[in-house]
Every structure is written in structure tokens, then in C-alpha cells.
Design a protein around this nucleic acid. Structure first.
Lengths: 199, 199
DNA sequence: GCGGATGTTGCCGGAGATGCAATCTTGCAA
DNA sequence: TTGCAAGATTGCATCTCCGGCAACATCCGC
């Protein structure tokens, strides 16, 4: 499971992904090329292409990893706990630590805004996250997403809460902590999204 | 607005999009190339690239159009109607007419399943649809998605309902009409997605 | 230790995307 | 009607990106 081989492979991947991320923040999307990233990580360009389909995938790989970790944290919650409570318990903290620095994430949002490829890659990450989340939810409540709509719906709702909360948080004209924003969104969704303002 | 010029441009676009769609259903994704589609629509390959970024975009262009129409239909609902009711009124019918033939759509699902590019393109379409839906919802309730999370949350929920319902419907091991599935999903979401089974 | 499996790398070819400019069609006004 | 500007269609040339193939190095299991 944790053989030297797999660890080295993961290390290579992580090194390039982090290099790509830093390069995006400091020099913009155009500066992120297989060549530059590979050089920064001290590897061959071809190795970059072995691990990642394109630069967008490399840049977002870190986020993708953490999305996968989200599902795991859902599974780890005590067995009897209602799923909604599990989400409310896990998501605010997990997502907050996921997007540590607001300025960095604002930059990412800006890049996504004017790059269709980045947007598409980001949507892929989110979709994959939803799939895993649906699986985890289904496992907890004993229903498979294949035959029951519930896990998919709840995972979709959770994903929506995260996306909306993070987007508003990244905009920066509101200093509410990200965790509180997510809790607020989740609570509204759990209440069935009534129109009434509830400040 | 409806000058001859624009109609001709839209016609070219529609012709190629439909050709791409038919070609996908009959010969698979690999058969859909700018050259083949352009030939089928009696146009030059370069014209294909003038209208579409890639084959996936061409294939899904019809769906994208209808997603845009969705937002318009939300806006057309009577002014006093609660937004949730508007969704419940518009979505089942609109989506049902959107995916007329189950076999065709099942094919699309299959293609999406093993083509990351198709998946990404599809997610782009859905995301764009959500944006428009959020705008329409915000307009109806007098809140802009820019400063208020409500429109985005509700649009996200609506999108989730559609995606999940359509996916299950396309699987085909349940003969419930698509409209009923969507209504069911919407009702569950409006009720805050309680875990209890309610058959 | 040895053989198989797998990560790393270089080389190279095909496919896809884009800028440019020429040409034709349409919209509009003189 | 006629002429001009704007925009759609097309060809050409180029460029980048992606992936297959094969060689080599390293690691795992027996």
C-alpha cells in the first residue's frame, strides 16, 4: 500500500502540482507549461505529461486530492450520526483548511473566470468530488447511488453549498469566516431553502 | 434581432450541431470530426472551427441552447408566484421535452462516461445553465447573485435535481416518466432532503 | 537474487486550434 | 438603385499539445 514506489510516484506528482500552483499564483496561467513546471520540479517534460493530461489538471491536482479526502472524512464519522449532521460537522472545517489563503484563492477564481479550460478542469474536480461524496453518503445510509437518488441529491446539495460559499468568500466584500458561510448555506438547504430572509 | 444575417448564422450553427449529434448517435464519438461534420452540413471545416471550439461543444450545442431557454421560461412565470413553484412548474415539462428520446440520451450518457472531454464539455453546459438560472431567479426575487447566496443556492439545487433525475431516468431500470422523477427530486429538496423514505 | 512490473524519459508523428487575409453576403443609408 | 461598412465563410499556414512507442532505471514479490 505504501511501498517506496508509490510514495515516489506520489511525490513526483505532488512536486509538479505544487510547482504548477505556485507558478500560477506568481506568473499567471500562461507561465504554466509542461516545460516550466517540469523544470521547476526537476523532472522531464514528458514526465509531466505522464502524470497530467494538461496544465489545468496539474494546477488543480492538490484541490482534487483534498476533495477525495472529504469523502473519507465523511466515512469516518460515528456510525449512528445522521448524514446531515456529518456534513455540517465535516464540511466547514475541511473546506476552510482546504482554501487557507483567501488572496490565493481569489487569484484562482480570477484565472478561472477568463479561461474556459480552467473552468472546465475545475468543474471536473468538483464533479469527481460529488461522485465520491455520493458514494460515502450512500455507504453511511446503506443505499447505493446507483439505484437510489438520495445520495446523489445530498452530495449535489453539499457541493452547491461549498461552491456558492467559497465563491462569495473569495469575492472578499464580506468578512464572514468561510466556515460560517458554509454552515449558513447548509442550514438553508436543510431547511428547504425558504425564501424568507433570516439574518 | 432576427435579421436574415443572424438567422443564417444560427442556421449554420444548428445544421452542424445537429449533424454532429446524429453522427455521434450513429457512428460514435470518434466519427465526429470537424471535417466529417462540416461535410455532412455542407460547409468547410474551417467554418466548423469558427462556430465551435471543438467537437464536444458542437455536439452539446443543442442542449446548451435549451438550457438557456430554461432560464427564459422561469422569467415568464407570473410575477407573484413563489420561485419554488415556478421551478416545479417549469422544470419537469421543459426537461422532459429537452431529452425526448431515452435511448438517444442513454447513448450520450455512455459516451460521456468514457470520454473526459465530453464530461468536461457537459459540465460546462450545466454550469452555464446554472449561471443563467441563478440570474433569472435573482431577477424574480429582486436579489442579485453577486451579493446574495440565495439565487445561486436555488439554481444549484435545481441543477442537481435535473442531473440526478435525468441520470437515473437514462439508466432505464425504472419506467417512471422523467417529469415525475424531477418533481420527486424537487419536492425532496424543498423538504430539506429528509432521510426518511417516502414512497 | 531474479524476473516481472512499473515509473521516468526522449523521440516523433498526428490531431486540433488559431491568426491572417481573401472573398462573398447582408444591412443600411445616400 | 447603388455603394459602403460589417460580418460570415473559407483556405492556408503554422503552432502547440497530446499520446504512442521504446529504452532504461528502479522497485516489488517470490
Amino acid at each position: 500500500m505504501t511501498g517506496l514506489r508509490e510514495r515516489k510516484k506520489a511525490a513526483s506528482r505532488a512536486a509538479m502540482s505544487q510547482a504548477a500552483w505556485r507558478m500560477l499564483l506568481e506568473h499567471g496561467l500562461d507561465a504554466v507549461t509542461p516545460e516550466s513546471v517540469a523544470a521547476a520540479a526537476d523532472m522531464a517534460p514528458r514526465t509531466f505529461r505522464y502524470h497530467f493530461r494538461n496544465r489545468e489538471e496539474a494546477i488543480l491536482d492538490g484541490l482534487a486530492q483534498q476533495h477525495m479526502a472529504l469523502a473519507a472524512r465523511i466515512r469516518e464519522r460515528p456510525a449512528g450520526e445522521p448524514v446531515w449532521d456529518s456534513l455540517r460537522h465535516v464540511l466547514p472545517a475541511a473546506v476552510t483548511e482546504m482554501f487557507g489563503d483567501r488572496a490565493e484563492f481569489a487569484k484562482l477564481v480570477a484565472v478561472i473566470a477568463d479561461s474556459p479550460a480552467m473552468l472546465a478542469a475545475n468543474l471536473l474536480v468538483l464533479e469527481q468530488g460529488r461522485q465520491l461524496m455520493a458514494g460515502a453518503i450512500g455507504e453511511r445510509i446503506g443505499r447505493t447511488p446507483q439505484t437510489d437518488v438520495y445520495p446523489g441529491l445530498l452530495a449535489g446539495v453539499a457541493g452547491t453549498a461549498i461552491s456558492i460559499a467559497v465563491t462569495h468568500w473569495a469575492r472578499g466584500d464580506d468578512d464572514t469566516p468561510l466556515g460560517d458561510l458554509i454552515r449558513d448555506c447548509l442550514d438553508r438547504l436543510r431547511a428547504g431553502l425558504p425564501l424568507e430572509t433570516s439574518p
